[in-house]
Design a protein around this nucleic acid. Structure first.
Lengths: 239, 239
DNA sequence: CGTCTCCTTGACGTTCATCAAGTATTGTGG
DNA sequence: CCACAATACTTGATGAACGTCAAGGAGACG
């Protein structure tokens, strides 16, 4: 999940993620203005935090390369994973309400992000209605994604959830122009388990079954999908 | 849950829910402007829809009195309930992303709402930064609420979930100035079950237990909380 | 007053968690 | 590049929480 079609300090106007990030729907002149307030951070290494729960909220972060997990911590000090964020995704939107981050956001791999200082972003938003609309749209999308996640957790069996997860990842990568039938996924099975409300044991058993059926494999961070349709049938079977 | 401290067509400036609705943080002159774009609808009776999935998105709705449930439908035609919305709450924010409603919003009781036409609201937002900020804040809050709901579903037992639900309802009513140890809750047990990812049978059994312990009762739509602390201990006990 | 929906209670079953032990993989210091 | 530790993954045996099925009772509504 390295950066695509763009050098390290690429401006928004040259960024491959333009179509799904803040710049979506903006005129070139407005993209220029957006560009000027973006704070392009040096790469984060695996394990570095974008922010942690309790910290003051100052910026939203657009992911340019890599992968970020967002989670909270339960009363047993265990991570409750809310999502995995890919290039073009925005993290931090949950913090606007009270000026303080509610969750943890950590790089799971070498990751590059653009920080968008909230004050300046919203100021520009009042001057560029399309930008404002795009922020609303991104937040709305985040609401829907969360509800969808809840729905999957409550309505689907363990096998369906895992099939669904693989397919969603595949589709998100495809939408971003990456290879989607075979890809590196630097996510621990333990993390997938948390995200899907399962145990690592269950994830392991189900992956074993999927592999035996010849549907897919996931070994050493490398996912290979061999039978997309079988996975789709599994993910959406009544259940 | 009838309207509080305000006549039927009360303006925003006289509305009891001013502090938690869109008007929060606005200057009086701006509240006036907000007021002018609010479309105060006639009351909805139980069972009437604010909107349904697939409909075009035109307005957000601020609830002035009553109670609204928001849900989607799974592959077995069963409702998957995402939330119950009380006076001062906003519904419809999930629809901004794609101009089309994703969910169903239905009155569970006689309900009054203020419709806020989205076009006009965002236009005013660009002119009144505090209003814009308030919309962001409400949406952010909706994101957090959704994640919290997921967390409760995945991290807590059936008994904890139900105790938590009762306490959350009580607290939300208290925050809105209503009686909170004894209140009418026009919600079917079946709906609570859906919201908490349980069956009506399980809800019934647990309510029976809570009543036998002398913690609370919920009979004929009337909730009486007798031992708030016992419920709190139950809701937050590890496990 | 009768019907329909909702709620209650009991017996039983299923899914997935837990516990445990072993194997593979990754990371680290020499 | 290797030794060895730490972490992650696998596989099996067992169990618990909650769902499912079934039948009866109580409100609500015309």
């Amino acid at each position: 999940m390295t950066e695509k079609h763009s050098g390290f300090n690429a401006s928004c106007s040259k960024c491959a993620m333009q179509g799904i990030c803040f710049a979506n729907g903006l005129y070139d002149t407005d993209i220029e203005r957006l560009d000027q307030l973006v704070d392009r951070k040096p790469s984060l290494v695996k394990g570095e935090y974008l922010y942690q729960a309790g910290e003051n909220f100052t910026s939203l972060y657009a992911i340019r390369a890599g992968i970020v997990k967002v989670y909270s911590v339960n009363e047993h000090e265990q991570e409750v994973i809310h999502g995995f964020y890919l290039p073009g995704d925005i993290v931090g939107m949950e913090a606007l309400a009270c000026c303080r981050h509610e969750f943890y956001a950590v790089a799971m791999d070498t990751t590059t992000v653009c920080a968008l200082p909230y004050e300046q972003l919203t100021k520009l938003g009042t001057e560029v209605p399309n930008l404002n609309a795009q922020i609303f749209s991104l937040m709305s999308h985040e609401i829907v994604t969360g509800r969808l996640h809840s729905t999957i957790l409550t309505q689907k069996t363990a096998e369906q959830r895992l099939a669904d997860f693989i397919l969603m990842m595949s589709e998100r990568l495809r939408a971003r122009g990456y290879e989607h039938t075979q890809f590196r996924l630097n996510v621990l099975h333990r993390d997938v388990a948390s995200y899907l409300n399962l145990t690592p044991e269950t994830v392991s058993r189900i992956l074993g079954k999927f592999q035996k059926q010849g549907w897919m494999s996931w070994k050493r961070k490398e996912v290979v999908i061999q039978d997309m349709e079988a996975l789709q049938a599994m993910a959406s079977s009544a259940g």
